[in-house]
Design a protein around this nucleic acid. Structure first.
Lengths: 138, 138
DNA sequence: CAATAAATGCACTTCCATTGCATCATATAA
DNA sequence: TTATATGATGCAATGGAAGTGCATTTATTG
């Protein structure tokens, strides 16, 4: 608990009770979460607070937003080898069409992409859709 | 005109006036279009018709839907080397953050992605964000 | 403790995707 | 050719998610 508090302070984010809880929640989950997920987990809190907490986390490099193709923004902690500020270090995401869960494959970096002459890359998003390990045996 | 008609028939889509016009519109555009774009181009037609036309086209392999990360679905014709049914032939998309246009880079295939044990890929989506050729000189 | 700034909650808006149902057009069978 | 069925189109409405403005509460600092 104290660690989270210190971690948030390091990231220049005031460690309010709500923020600590949300961080804890996301740390316990192995998968990327949507705003709605957090909303369901913290029914007492207001949607806007949760929304703005995620935005604050994102701005301060605590979480990264994931567009997994479902149309719903997901968020995941920037830990375990995720250096999302550095372009070359972008990892890929996997979305399971069975359980509908999205995971960060942090060890799997996006290969270098060649672009046509004149195109300048700033960001790359790679999402693989399929069946995840958990659902594989079905 | 007749060609489009025959093309649609080949794809098992009834070549109505509206559909021919929409196909023509998309063929003339070099970029991926959103439903709203088509709506603005055909103000006489109803949004729903346009929406369902795109869905019909998609189901019959005439267009493919693109998720370029803007949160708005784009569509582009499946021509010029786009075999979107075949997994290995997926091309990548480029979204320009300046002009906000999305293009298919059909010659640029997505490299093979290694996944962890137990994961099964069915589909891959790769979007590069940055500055396009047209906007590069600014 | 007072003053200031930040965080939270509430209400509301907007935008896009999607669906149900009625109506219209077209193709096919009688 | 007409009746019938099937598909296409139009209208209205819904739902979900993102985002914003403002009031209120909470925390920080002097």
């Amino acid at each position: 608990m104290k660690e989270i508090e210190m971690f948030l302070e390091n990231k220049k984010v005031r460690p309010t009770a709500m923020r600590i809880l949300i961080y804890k929640y996301m740390a316990e989950k192995e998968i990327a979460v949507a705003l709605t997920d957090i909303e369901n987990a913290f029914t007492k809190a207001d949607r806007t607070t949760l929304y703005r907490t995620l935005k604050t986390f994102e701005e301060n490099g605590i979480v990264h937003q994931i567009d997994d193709g479902t149309g719903i923004s997901k968020y995941a902690l920037c830990e375990k080898g995720c250096n999302c500020e550095i372009e070359q270090d972008l990892h890929l995401h996997f979305h399971c069409s069975n359980c509908n869960e999205t995971v960060c494959l942090t060890e799997h970096k996006i290969p270098h992409i060649n672009l046509p002459e004149g195109y300048l890359a700033a960001d790359v998003n790679l999402v693989v859709k399929g069946i995840c390990e958990k659902c594989g045996g079905q």
